[in-house]
């Protein structure tokens, strides 16, 4: 990225690649209300959107689905068959409420990144994925202690059966760190980093296109601008896929953690 910027900078007069500072540190929408920034607005909008669409679909569900219900049911089925059932088995239905909420909310958060005008993935601010990951983490520990007992939970986690005795001494700290600290951290950071990087890339290429085709149109710069536009279009497609994929993975990991707490298998 920095290398690219250096290469391109001389071509356009004063082209500067967008810095994370510009892209992610956004000013308040209403001057003075410091907390009311674009991500906050979009987070609220996402919640309203998720509730609105789901309400339209499932408030009075029909036996034979039609219209919105059909579409949202597709999402519900996806979560049930790809996320809940593989990891929770017969407990899947009890956790569908949580998993559907998480999946839909994260999906809309992410998709905000490619919606024209809005164009900001909410999850690229770490606070939002962190909150969800924290809730899941709390639930995981709570369920683990509830279903396996306080001692049993940590014993099952840190002393997986089937290992030679002395090696436990070396492995137990790894298991603890991996399960209790790294897992929730990566849960949030994976989503955050993907959205952050995706937004950077999109912003960079669209900026290139805009700069070289509209701001400073030169014979030399025009092809670069075209490349920027083409890349923006291609990356938008890729980004939509990644946004969906990350929402799926986030929900899947949530299901995995819950399932692991309900039934320790190893």
């Amino acid at each position: 990225m920095n290398a690219l910027t250096v290469l391109l900078a001389p071509a356009g007069d004063q082209f500067g690649a967008p810095t994370p500072e510009e892209l992610f540190n956004l000013p308040p929408i209403i001057p003075g209300v410091y907390w009311f920034t674009k991500p906050v607005l979009l987070a609220m909008l996402s919640a309203v959107l998720v509730i609105g669409v789901t309400w339209a679909a499932f408030a009075k569900p029909k036996l034979v689905p039609r219209g919105v219900q059909n579409a949202v049911e597709l999402g519900y089925m996806f979560v049930r068959d790809q996320v809940a059932r593989p990891f929770l088995g017969k407990d899947a239905d009890r956790w569908m409420g949580l998993l559907v909420s998480v999946f839909f909310l994260v999906l809309v958060w992410n998709l905000m990144g490619v919606v024209p005008v809005l164009q900001f993935p909410v999850a690229s601010h770490i606070a939002f994925p962190a909150v969800l990951a924290l809730v899941i983490y709390g639930l995981k520990v709570y369920l683990g202690i509830k279903h396996q007992g306080g001692v049993g939970y940590f014993k099952n986690m840190m002393f997986p059966p089937g290992l030679p005795k002395p090696i436990y001494f070396l492995l137990a700290p790894i298991e603890f760190l991996s399960n209790m600290i790294i897992a929730p951290f990566t849960h949030a950071v994976r989503l955050f980093a993907n959205m952050f990087a995706g937004h950077m890339l999109l912003a960079f290429f669209s900026m290139v296109g805009f700069w070289f085709l509209f701001e400073k149109l030169t014979p030399l710069g025009a092809p670069v601008g075209v490349v920027g536009v083409v890349m923006t279009i291609l990356l938008t497609g890729l980004e939509i896929f990644i946004q969906y994929l990350q929402a799926f993975l986030f929900a899947m990991l949530a299901a995995m953690y819950i399932g692991g707490s309900l039934h320790p298998e190893h």
């Binding site: 987070a43 609220m44 996402s46 919640a47 998720v50 509730i51 789901t54 309400w55 679909a57 499932f58 408030a59 009075k60 569900p61 049911e73 519900y76 569908m96 409420g97 949580l98 559907v100 909420s101 839909f104 909310l105 606070a127 939002f128 962190a130 909150v131 969800l132 809730v135």
Partner: peptide, 20 residues
């Protein structure tokens, strides 16, 4: 984040998902 998630969880997870 926590508030919007809790609202979604309540409305979608608690009310709507049981219906569907």
């Amino acid at each position: 984040g926590i508030f919007s998630f809790l609202v979604v969880l309540f409305v979608v997870g608690r009310i709507l998902v049981p219906r569907i």
